[in-house]
Every structure is written in structure tokens, then in C-alpha cells.
């Protein structure tokens, strides 16, 4: 009987797709790919979330926002579970999320360019590999340069466009 009143899992995913990331509110938690699972466990709705970065201060806020959004839809019994493995990767950012990032002025991650994948090759002395080309989200120029490995949040690096001279954030690949 009670199950008949439960919202469908599909509805829950849809609601979650409207919960914004607190630091980059243009994209949602589902765009980011951090919601790994949604399921009912008896009376509780279990939402499994994976952190982006271990120390990301937004993690606690994201959890609160998810709980609040679901309570507003009438789900009182929400349980959030953390899943570390498989570890979050920027490959999980949706195509829609990437487009939103670009429109917002943040260059989307370029798949396959994690520090990890290039590190061992570089250490082996293969420094001759083509340097990463990040396109300017403002003028689309490929003539850009890295200012710093890190940016305004743990997930971003700072770049500058050598054509329009605008600084911008690059969502780095992990």
C-alpha cells in the first residue's frame, strides 16, 4: 500500500537534476555525475553520492541541498550514502553539463588528460608530448596558457587567453 504512494525513481532523478552545484550553480549535481545511485530501502530513499575532491568544502552543502530538495517533494526519510569507489572522474560530467560550463565561461575538461595518465610518461622522460590545448570559452581561441594548476575551487585550473587576453577557469580532468 505504502509503496503505491512512493515517487518513482525516475521522478527522483528528475528532481535531483534541478539541484545545483553550490560552487558552479549553472550545473546540477546530476550534470556533475556525482549521484551514483537512487534506490528505496524499505521506507528510506537511499541516495548514493560520490565526492568530487576529498577536501571539497561543497560536499557537505551538496548533501544538505539534496536532502532539502527531496523533503520539499515530500520525501521525509532520506539516507545519503558516500561511495568512494569507483572514484569520481570528470568523464562523468554530462554533455549537457559541459555545454553549460562553456556558456558560463569555464572551459570543460578534456577527457584523457588527467595528471595521472600523463605523469608516468612525463616522468619517464617523454616530455615531448603535445601540450594540452584548452580552448578559450569566450573567443574559442586555442592560443591559451596555464597560469596556475589550481583555481578558485579545487576542481579548476587558471588559464589565460592570449588572443582576447581574458583569464578563465578550466575544469581540470581527473
Amino acid at each position: 500500500m505504502a509503496t503505491a504512494l512512493r515517487p518513482s525513481i525516475e521522478d527522483v532523478w528528475n528532481w535531483l537534476s534541478h539541484v545545483p552545484d553550490p560552487e558552479i550553480p549553472i550545473i546540477s549535481v546530476t550534470d556533475l555525475g556525482i549521484i551514483r545511485d537512487v534506490a528505496w530501502d524499505r521506507e528510506a530513499l537511499v541516495v548514493t553520492v560520490t565526492p568530487t575532491y576529498s577536501g571539497c568544502p561543497a560536499t557537505a552543502v551538496i548533501n544538505q541541498d539534496i536532502e532539502r530538495a527531496l523533503k520539499e517533494k515530500g520525501i521525509e526519510n532520506v539516507r545519503l550514502e558516500r561511495r568512494l569507489s569507483p572514484a569520481w572522474t570528470t568523464d562523468w560530467i554530462s554533455a549537457e553539463g559541459r555545454e553549460k560550463l562553456g556558456n558560463y565561461g569555464i572551459a570543460a575538461p578534456i577527457d584523457g588528460t588527467t595528471a595521472e595518465s600523463t605523469l608516468m610518461e612525463r616522468i619517464a622522460g617523454l616530455a615531448g608530448g603535445a601540450p594540452l590545448t584548452v580552448q578559450c570559452p569566450r573567443c574559442n581561441s586555442g592560443r591559451t596558457e596555464k597560469i596556475s594548476q589550481f583555481g578558485s575551487t579545487p576542481c579548476k585550473a587558471s588559464y589565460r587567453c592570449r588572443d582576447c587576453l581574458e583569464p578563465f577557469d578550466y575544469f581540470k580532468c581527473i
Partner: peptide, 23 residues
């Protein structure tokens, strides 16, 4: 221990960036 393996999997991605930068 899968708990240790999971933390290592997660954190090694971050540490790869630390190493790339400090190096």
C-alpha cells in the same frame, strides 16, 4: 582491504596533480 583501496583510488588522483605541480 577494499576500504583502503577505495581511499587510495580516490586520493591518488589528487596527489598526481600535487606531484605534477611540485615537480
Amino acid at each position: 582491504d577494499p576500504r583502503i583501496a577505495a581511499i587510495a583510488e580516490k586520493t591518488s588522483k589528487e596527489v598526481a596533480y600535487h606531484l605534477e605541480r611540485s615537480r
